[in-house]
Design a protein around this nucleic acid. Structure first.
Lengths: 359, 359
DNA sequence: CTGAAAGCGCTTACAG
DNA sequence: CTGAAAGCGCTTACAG
């Protein structure tokens, strides 16, 4: 039961001596009232501390001026930055934005998506990070007003906004190649994701363009987190000829790699060069400052909200241009050493992670 | 208008040949039906892809099994970590958690808080980061079911959960003192905040306990962000006798200080020792790895949700014990040099920030 | 222009 | 045990 204290539109109407209809219309600006009447309503609203019940409004109107953002992991800094920018833009456009943390669980994503059906939100920005088993496409295609952000769900009929993954990966790879590296490794996220596919694809192309082959030992796919970065590093470290450079296709992976280097005494960049992707806040303060492909979270959030609101308003949404990327050169890349770095003795004993599947 | 496709409880009732009442009660588990009847309902639900409209339910029930979390800045890593932990615990207890980014704007906090009034959420975890002008206390005291997390709003009648700020600050300060520092500075957030007051208070006490005085030149209050850290550093750097150690009462401040050191060529810890507060993810990878007071975001999120749900259920909430803290020693603290570090010539020209108010 | 009334999709006292 | 009906607090066709 509602608290008995909250006053309703009926109370206001009664206090102002007009009908509920009139109060509603006046409050929604659909009517122009004589100054005297509108003043009576204003006074009643103030006196009763009346605040329209948003739930009731939604039920009858079917819309809420609210948009949702489903994020797979709010503690991933790049995602949090997108969320923050999205909120700011939504607010600017008169919407409120609510965020849902799905922890990358498909069932939660579906549940949050259902909020479109009952007008809890008018639309949703979906940032997923796992392959779809079909349920997601189905859901997206039955509820309108979702836009896919950062990762794709293949088959979904919805506007999309992605980064320029291919260009970013090419920039990173060529930067390494330009420094003379030939033994360069790739660390990716879940292989089924668009970002992984595109970044790996461009990595491969960049090598090919220089008549180089991808060495399967130098490719690792995991999750987009520090642990996977560490796992990748340890696998590479166990090789007879470890790579001299790594393209970590997400900064969190690079952080895990750095972690591994620190533990095993490998110096970056003199033993091993490293470039990241995302360029999250403060990577310039790492040891060493990380060279990384920058993508603008601000642009991501802002444009995604714009797309969604246009979509809600029924506009035809053209394919969105990718979010721009650029390489930020700092100090984690140097020319390769003459000799490969090798771990002393059994430094790796017991540290090797289980193998992960390739692409 | 709702999409015509969404089916309602009436459709289900009709298809199953029972009343709406029966369907509702059955779906809410308030009734035990003959297997045959419940099977008919199940079939109807499946066939019509019926999903209860949560908005309608809220309007009639007045509750939503949803809790809200208002965070002043979701891109602040420590807050994002709390949010993440809170979501997990809420989910475990059968609630869904929605997050609101207030950008530390009081009006937004008030607006989000109002969602308790219309049952959009059953209760709210409030993380604010600015002094209250009175509106917040009033709001909190008129809507039940809010718990204050991380920072206080004085005068509010609500359960609270704070870190052990005093102990944390003491640990940090004594660590510096134990290394022989006497010229130790304090950098705080907004001086009106509980965390600032408590951390500064304990800093002061720790000095006093060793018969040391706080040097007003060594105290700086700003915001809890990198910029303020940088500002503080630059002010200290302009002093004739700069401090040999800084207690940055938030990691983001420490990051700004590190930024300043890098720009001006000051070495940490040999020129300047530094300890942070929060111990956010990956500060072990900084240059140098940051010594910091650790507070558990996981514990914060988990316990805050527990408190709130107990509160919603009408339990009497005793004063919560503070969230534990501990000092994590890494490599940003060393013994002070014999001589004070000084900047060469006019290295600071044009870089000095405007003065900020003291406590 | 104004208002009485129906309706949004549920839940739940109340009566049978 | 079951169901018809009222009610949650709004909005909005519809009639006056």
């Amino acid at each position: 039961m509602k608290k008995p204290t909250a006053s309703t539109i009926r109370n206001v109407a009664h206090a102002a001596g007009v009908s509920v209809t009139t109060v509603s219309r006046h409050l929604n600006g659909r009517i122009k009232l004589p100054a005297e009447t509108s003043e009576r309503i204003r006074a009643a609203v103030a006196k009763l501390e009346y605040r329209p019940n948003a739930i009731a409004r939604r039920l009858s109107k079917g819309s809420s001026e609210t948009i949702g953002l489903i994020v797979s992991d709010i503690s991933y800094p790049f995602f949090a930055a997108i969320a923050s920018a999205a909120e700011e833009e939504a607010s600017r456009l008169g919407y409120s934005l609510v965020m849902f943390n799905s922890r990358n669980i498909a069932a939660k994503e579906l549940g949050f998506l259902s909020r479109i059906d009952d007008a809890q939100v008018d639309g949703i920005l979906l940032m997923t990070n796992h392959p779809d088993d079909g349920a997601l496409v189905h859901k997206i295609n039955t509820c309108s007003n979702v836009v896919l952000v950062d990762e794709d769900v293949p088959g979904a009929i919805a506007p999309r906004l992605f980064a320029d993954n291919r260009l970013g990966a090419r920039l990173a790879t060529e930067h390494l190649l330009d420094h003379g590296h030939r033994a360069v490794a790739f660390v990716g996220g879940p292989p089924a994701l668009l970002s992984s596919k595109e970044r790996f694809g461009a990595f491969e192309d960049s090598l090919k363009r220089r008549s180089l082959e991808v060495n399967p030992d130098y490719v690792f796919f995991g999750d987009y987190d520090e642990q996977s970065g560490l796992d990748a590093f340890l696998r590479f470290a166990a090789l007879d000829s470890p790579p001299t450079a790594i393209f970590a296709s997400a900064d969190m992976l690079a952080l895990g790699i750095l972690q591994g280097c620190r533990r095993l005494g490998i110096a970056v960049p003199s033993d091993l060069s490293l470039v990241g992707f995302d360029d999250i806040r403060n990577v310039d303060l790492l040891d060493p400052p990380l060279t990384a492909v920058h993508q603008s979270a601000e642009e991501f959030g802002r444009r995604a909200v714009g797309l969604l609101i246009d979509h809600i308003n029924g506009a035809e949404i053209p394919d969105a241009a990718p979010v721009a990327v650029k390489l930020i050169v700092r100090h984690s890349v140097a020319a390769p050493r003459k000799a490969h770095w090798k771990l002393a003795g059994n430094a790796l004993a017991g540290k090797l992670p289980p193998a992960r599947v390739g692409i």
